[in-house]
Design a protein around this nucleic acid. Structure first.
Lengths: 156, 156
DNA sequence: ATTGATTTAATCGTGTTCGATTTAATTTGA
DNA sequence: TCAAATTAAATCGAACACGATTAAATCAAT
């Protein structure tokens, strides 16, 4: 009862850290999806990017970036690879030549079947109910919003 | 009630995806910690690595790798940077010359004060109780274990 | 004791991420 | 109108992550 130090505040036990738990879970998703992605010829970040395009086609690079929390320095090369593979097309906007519009090709849209399979595969392995998962998603989104807001506050 | 397709299974709404929620939360932790880490002169992965060493000093590279889910191809250069900065020492084991033992230096141990501050900082911004966080950590660890086990199963 | 298999870390190439800068197009204001 | 400020994407360099390979040390098993 006497010793307090760091024990009452997570201390150094890595497994008690929320950031480490999230790091590990993210890592596990990465490793789980990677071999499945490989069959489609894409990487995990490319998969996430395609999901954003399935949700809404014909987005600007910066629009995609807002959705995925990435900027042109990351997206430009990634999109170029997707373009080389023939899954998307990139074209300067007629209205504003600064903007590049990213669109799915037929081949890109064709990936959606494989993607659905992947989702079933991952979800089938988590023996959790839809409600439980949905609740967890909400909690994680709360944390994300809180940390993002806190960072804004600090850097302001 | 007629349409089924993908809607009853998360479909393409990115925000309903557990993997995306985790991706975002991990990203938010990264962005939140980054400027704080910068004051200490280290990166987020280096921070995680140091946490593992605070928990247990004098680990082999492969031991650290198991803990952090990384391998020598990632750890070797990262550890070399921590060594250059004087936070750790790397030395071949006398018993087995193949092994490299990673140890904290005084300067490395000295970082732990700053690290405690960082943890307070992050935790103070999450207006969640310790129990709530602990519960969330357990759920995330469950997911990680499940996905890791599922991957083993598939690759076997 | 020597050959062959295994283990450990290091190395290499590709892709992702990010801070910082650059280039080009658009908007603003004098 | 035309220079200055702003915006959008691209580029660059450093760090991280990973599959695959390599080099060196150890172990196994005759």
């Amino acid at each position: 009862m006497a010793e307090k130090k760091t024990e009452d505040f997570q201390g150094f036990e890595l497994d008690q850290h929320l950031c480490f738990a999230i790091y590990k879970a993210n890592h596990a998703f990465n490793r789980f999806y990677k071999p499945v992605m490989k069959k489609l010829g894409i990487t995990y970040p490319q998969y996430i990017t395609l999901l954003a395009l399935f949700e809404k086609d014909h987005q600007r690079v910066s629009e995609l970036g807002e959705r995925l929390f990435l900027e042109s320095n990351t997206l430009t090369p990634l999109l170029k690879r997707l373009e080389e593979m023939g899954f998307i097309a990139r074209a300067r906007s007629k209205e504003d030549e600064r903007q590049v519009i990213v669109s799915l090709t037929d081949a890109g849209r064709g990936l959606s079947d494989g993607v659905i399979d992947i989702q079933h595969c991952a979800f089938g392995n988590l023996d959790a109910s839809l409600e439980k998962v949905s609740e967890l998603v909400d909690q994680l989104n709360d944390i994300q919003r809180t940390l993002t807001a806190a960072k804004e506050k600090v850097s302001a």
